[in-house]
Nucleic acid binder design. Sequence first.
DNA 1: CTGGATGCAAAGGTTTTGCACGCTA
DNA 2: TAGCGTGCAAAACCTTTGCATCCAG
Lengths: 141, 141
Amino acid sequence: MENKPQRMTKQRKIILEELRKLTSHPTADELYEIVRERLPRISLGTVYRNLDVLSENGEVLKLESAGSQKRFDGDVSSHCHVRCVNCGRVGDVMDELPEPEVHSVSAPGFTITHGATEFYGVCDTCRDGDELAAPGAHRTQ
Amino acid sequence: MENKPQRMTKQRKIILEELRKLTSHPTADELYEIVRERLPRISLGTVYRNLDVLSENGEVLKLESAGSQKRFDGDVSSHCHVRCVNCGRVGDVMDELPEPEVHSVSAPGFTITHGATEFYGVCDTCRDGDELAAPGAHRTQ
DNA sequence: CTGGATGCAAAGGTTTTGCACGCTA
DNA sequence: TAGCGTGCAAAACCTTTGCATCCAG
């Protein structure tokens, strides 16, 4: 799970570059749109395949904890995330927090390997009330 | 987000009852199969619709943090979860943990409202190596 | 050269939705 | 009785995959 990818293709290189430029934790198709400006003929499938490979190699983070649509993070260093409960956008938490103590907790039927602290809230775009600016948003209630 | 549902139909009542009986944090279709034993003519769409209503009313928990398929929890009291990184199953952590301190953290562009500690690991079924018993599982590597 | 990677498009899995009818309050 | 809720099926949505071709090493 930490072995380097076999081939560094143009596509893989540019996907990685663009993801690392961003702090926005894009979804696969958001990244696809961005990469497409440099590689107009790239396909969405290629973006998905590369994000898979890169996350298995530990070069990017696949944020499972992000609701329906997966999001990706080019910053692999240990840090916490906030998620907008309205639109799903993910942000970085600036402060360093201690990793949850794994050895002190028990869960029947599970072998716990690690823990994470996650935050929830509302992003500025959603707080300011414009539903249009929140992609795929539908007001909760 | 905390108003009671307008009507307590047979379907809604039984869905809630069955979910509260379980500690397994089922997916919508797992719950559908269970409820179907009591209401053979119920539809999957109804299960989804009711889980939405019930979670908006705070009667059940919708566990967004569960990868591709969503899971639901009939136990609304504050407790932490473990997630199997192999098959996605969710379990309860027995120990009480302090809620992360929200006021001490900052995230640009976000208004943080609450935090949660989440754990990851492997469930017994996956540890024991039988891929067949893990629904939809595919070994990571 | 060779086998991993790509583009394309189709398939797959999960969740949502339109519609006519049913049933709770 | 009014109008929310239901069953059914189709649609929508996100992600994965098969295949012929391409290209990095």
